[in-house]
């Protein structure tokens, strides 16, 4: 474990807490894409299957359980909560997630470390996480005025990925033989997708104006 990875995990944890706080405090999920949240739950469930058969550390196990439970909780809020579900804009959140999930599964079946069920599902989760934010970014472009907490949520998610890039550079420099091409390439693409958002987020922050992504 290194400081970059720990900071990345904490930023990821914070992003989910910010999202839950926003939904719970405002009793609204306006601007939040249910599709992205469902994709994240799928990412966590397919990636953390090793919870069933291997133990790495208390930290590792706790964080995996937190990510699965918290994303399930966000989905419950958006789908079931009597007040919050009224504020979900399904007419705007129309990204065809199958166009993301199917290519990721096909790629996972062809490009993987090992052709076993858990390894293919793990690889699928790596590819899927790279594109899971797209429905959320598309929704932000459509809903003109993005509320601050939702903007912060996406910014923290991007920050967690950027910290993971630093973590990989650090591990390459300090751990001879450490190679994770699938994770590195997929994670770099994922972080690149945030660059556009980072630009508009920082611009709106410096001009002290509402965040709005050009459609």
């Amino acid at each position: 474990m290194n400081i970059f990875r720990f900071a990345g995990d904490m930023t990821h944890l914070l992003s989910i807490i910010v999202l839950l706080l926003k939904i719970n405090a405002t009793k609204s999920c306006a601007g939040v894409s249910l599709k992205t949240q469902e994709l994240y739950l799928l990412v966590f469930v397919t990636r953390y299957l090793d919870l069933l058969y291997s133990y790495i550390s208390l930290y590792n196990t706790f964080m995996k359980l937190f990510f699965i439970c918290s994303s399930g909780c966000v989905i419950w809020y958006i789908r079931e909560h009597k007040t919050v579900s009224q504020t979900y804009d399904s007419a705007q959140d129309t990204f065809r997630v199958l166009f993301l999930a199917c290519p990721c599964m096909i790629l996972a079946l062809t490009v993987n470390h090992d052709f076993t069920v858990t390894e293919v599902l793990w690889t699928f989760s790596i590819y899927l996480e790279a594109v899971a934010i797209l429905p959320q970014l598309v929704l932000l472009q459509r809903t003109k005025n993005v509320d601050t907490l939702t903007g912060n949520y996406v910014f923290l998610l991007g920050g967690y990925r950027a910290l993971y890039l630093l973590n990989w550079i650090y591990r390459i420099l300090t751990e001879p033989g450490y190679r994770q091409w699938i994770v590195w390439i997929s994670g770099t693409i994922q972080t690149a997708i945030y660059c556009d958002f980072f630009y508009y987020y920082i611009k709106s922050w410096r001009n002290n104006e509402r965040l709005s992504l050009p459609s």
Binding site: D9, I56, S57, N60, M63, K64, Y178, R179
Partner: peptide, 10 residues
């Protein structure tokens, strides 16, 4: 790389 380092990231 050992199985440990492969899957120790979240």
């Amino acid at each position: 790389s050992s199985i440990f380092s492969r899957k120790d990231e979240l």
